[in-house]
Amino acid sequence: MNTPTEQLHPPVMAPGDYTRYKIILGGLGIVVPLLVAILFYFKGIFKIDGADAYLRMLPAVNAGLNSLTAVALLIGYYFIRRKNVLAHRAAMGTAFALGGLFLLSYVAYHSQVESTHFGGVGAARLIYFVLLLTHISLAVVTVGLVLFTLYFALTGQYTKHKAIARWTFPVWLYVSVTGVIVYFMISPYYV
């Protein structure tokens, strides 16, 4: 028997072969962070002469995308708490699209521009590196969490969606907010 949510808001995507989808999503959850790391650490291989001059504004763009993602996540949370599923879907779809744009912008920047080193000292340095370490670590996990949360929503597996979203939402929000904080802390040191 369908729940009221399933009756009012049918799945966007036919469930199909769940195992195949889970393997694909699990693979993406691993491959995407690995590709980002490869592009980041082996930037010399993928370097395009002169590209860095055009990409210098991307950290500010990334901070803006992270800010907008955080706002979309909070709006989505607000709407689902009020049982407005359609508005929740729109807000979370917006957060997903902004996250995708952020990922493309982040990879473009970090694959072409040399890393900026934080110049702060004392407590500011400790705070920066704690935020950066937790931000990066959780960003890696966020990819898989977001993909599975979205998958369960699109296939109408609302119980599973709700269960994983309880983890995805705070982690994704933390990653988005700390991304902005890290940007503001390091921005004085950009060349």
Rank of each mutant, 00 (worst) to 15 (best):
47 K>W: 05
15 P>C: 10
41 Y>D: 10
162 K>W: 11
85 V>D: 12
107 V>C: 12
116 T>H: 02
50 G>D: 03
189 Y>T: 02
148 F>P: 05
52 D>N: 10
82 R>Q: 10
7 Q>D: 12
10 P>R: 11
122 G>H: 02
158 Y>L: 14
122 G>Q: 06
116 T>Q: 01
26 G>S: 03
107 V>R: 07
48 I>C: 00
107 V>P: 03
139 A>H: 09
27 G>H: 00
9 H>F: 10
64 G>N: 06
109 Y>V: 09
104 L>G: 15
76 G>W: 03
166 R>P: 10
23 I>F: 12
175 V>D: 13
15 P>G: 11
81 R>M: 05
102 F>W: 11
7 Q>L: 15
103 L>A: 15
169 F>L: 15
104 L>V: 15
92 M>A: 04
44 G>S: 14
35 L>H: 01
119 G>C: 08
119 G>K: 07
161 H>Y: 11
167 W>S: 14
39 L>P: 08
190 Y>D: 00
77 Y>S: 03
52 D>T: 03
111 S>G: 11
83 K>R: 09
80 I>N: 06
123 A>E: 03
139 A>P: 06
16 G>E: 07
25 L>T: 00
67 S>R: 06
107 V>I: 15
1 M>K: 13
22 K>R: 14
43 K>P: 06
86 L>S: 07
2 N>F: 12
133 L>S: 15
15 P>M: 11
176 S>G: 05
111 S>R: 07
153 A>I: 02
117 H>P: 00
120 G>L: 04
134 T>H: 07
22 K>V: 03
190 Y>F: 13
166 R>M: 15
114 E>D: 14
164 I>N: 05
104 L>T: 10
154 L>K: 08
89 R>E: 12
159 T>H: 13
160 K>Q: 15
129 F>Q: 05
165 A>F: 12
150 L>Y: 04
142 T>Y: 07
168 T>H: 12
186 I>C: 00
106 Y>D: 08
24 I>M: 01
8 L>K: 11
124 A>Q: 04
190 Y>I: 03
49 D>I: 01
156 G>R: 14
66 N>H: 10
16 G>Y: 11
187 S>I: 00
187 S>V: 00
93 G>S: 08
183 Y>R: 01
136 I>Q: 11
34 L>I: 15
100 G>K: 13
88 H>W: 04
144 G>Y: 04
140 V>M: 05
64 G>D: 09
131 L>G: 09
118 F>R: 01
39 L>F: 14
32 V>H: 00
162 K>V: 13
174 Y>W: 10
8 L>Y: 08
64 G>L: 05
124 A>P: 02
61 V>G: 08
74 L>S: 05
107 V>T: 13
111 S>P: 01
129 F>P: 03
177 V>C: 09
98 L>W: 04
70 A>H: 03
179 G>W: 05
97 A>H: 03
106 Y>G: 02
170 P>S: 12
77 Y>H: 08
54 Y>H: 15
191 V>N: 10
46 F>P: 06
135 H>F: 06
79 F>H: 09
183 Y>W: 01
135 H>L: 09
87 A>R: 05
1 M>H: 12
168 T>N: 14
171 V>G: 10
122 G>R: 04
29 G>V: 00
103 L>D: 04
90 A>E: 07
130 V>G: 02
92 M>K: 01
36 V>N: 11
67 S>V: 09
134 T>E: 08
117 H>M: 12
116 T>Y: 08
148 F>Y: 09
163 A>G: 03
15 P>H: 10
